[in-house]
């Protein structure tokens, strides 16, 4: 591995470790409101200052990283798994199944999402704990974003289905499902990895927008999305550049992650 790769790995490890050790590193709990010092500038007690309600920004950033770091990749994995399942089945089976799956994908891409998510929120019980709420959010993100990936994977699977090695596998008596799982799927890994990389930052940002619909993360739990939403207001950054910390951390995290892990996918 190159020096750059190594340092990216170290950085990545540091970010993950820091977020996991948030309880030890953060000077205060993410929800404690120091109401006497709202909007504090960075100082010894609050290394990154405090937010409008006097909550420690560093603590919120660390805990927020934990939430987003764990859940965004998990949701991305779910989304890719669904894309793969639907895409491969459609591509391999062909015929009406393929047409149905692709029609469903078209439908999914063109659905009025806002409206649908509102309905989803209306169906959920009101009393969900913040953790359950964020879990549901990412679950939804993962479950609903399969369509574009499924299209890509479907065409990949359709091409592989006609390959010589698939024919040989069948000629040696391999049953259909096993053929998909053991022979075709491994060839689609690079495609799926690409889907995965695109999904992570997308999900982190969508989570913040879903908050507007009452679906995102609930008070007082922090998330990167919520912290990023704070800097939508350009007038505030000028006065307080510390607000950019989550954006910088997210960028660093994603570039390192990609740098380290995408090496494996040749």
């Amino acid at each position: 591995m190159t020096t750059a790769g190594k340092s990216a790995g170290v950085l990545l490890f540091a970010i993950v470790a820091a977020s996991l050790a948030a309880g030890y590193l953060a000077p205060a709990s993410y929800e404690t409101q120091f109401r006497e010092s709202p909007n504090a500038s960075p100082c010894r007690q609050f290394p990154l200052g405090t937010d409008e309600l006097g909550r420690d920004r560093l603590a919120r950033l660390l805990y927020g990283s934990r939430v987003s770091l764990l859940l965004a990749p998990a949701a991305a994995a779910l989304s890719v798994a669904l894309s793969a399942l639907i895409g491969i089945t459609a591509g391999y089976a062909g015929g009406w199944l393929e047409r149905a799956a692709m029609a469903a994908a078209d439908l999914f891409v063109s659905l009025p999402w806002l409206f649908l998510l509102l309905t989803v929120r209306a169906l959920l019980p009101l009393n969900v704990t913040p953790w359950a709420s964020i879990l549901i959010t990412f679950l939804l993100l993962g479950a609903l974003s399969w369509a574009p990936g499924a299209r890509v994977i479907r065409s990949g699977a359709a091409a592989l289905k006609h390959s010589e090695f698939a024919l040989l596998a069948r000629a040696s008596g391999c049953p259909g499902p096993r053929l998909l799982w053991k022979h075709i799927l491994p060839n689609l890994r690079p495609l799926m990895a690409a889907q995965f990389w695109i999904a992570i930052p997308m999900f982190i940002l969508s989570e913040a927008n879903l908050g507007m619909l009452g679906l995102g993360i609930a008070e007082p739990l922090p998330s990167w999305g919520g912290l990023l939403a704070e800097i939508q207001d350009p007038g505030r950054i000028a006065g307080n550049p510390v607000l950019l910390a989550p954006a910088i951390l997210l960028t660093v995290f994603l570039s390192c992650f990609q740098f380290v892990f995408s090496k494996g996918d040749r």
Binding site: L118, R121, L126, V128, L213, G214, A218
Partner: peptide, 13 residues
Amino acid sequence: LNVVPLDLPSLIE
């Protein structure tokens, strides 16, 4: 308290 922000129309509903 679980704070639940909802869009105004569904809240009114």
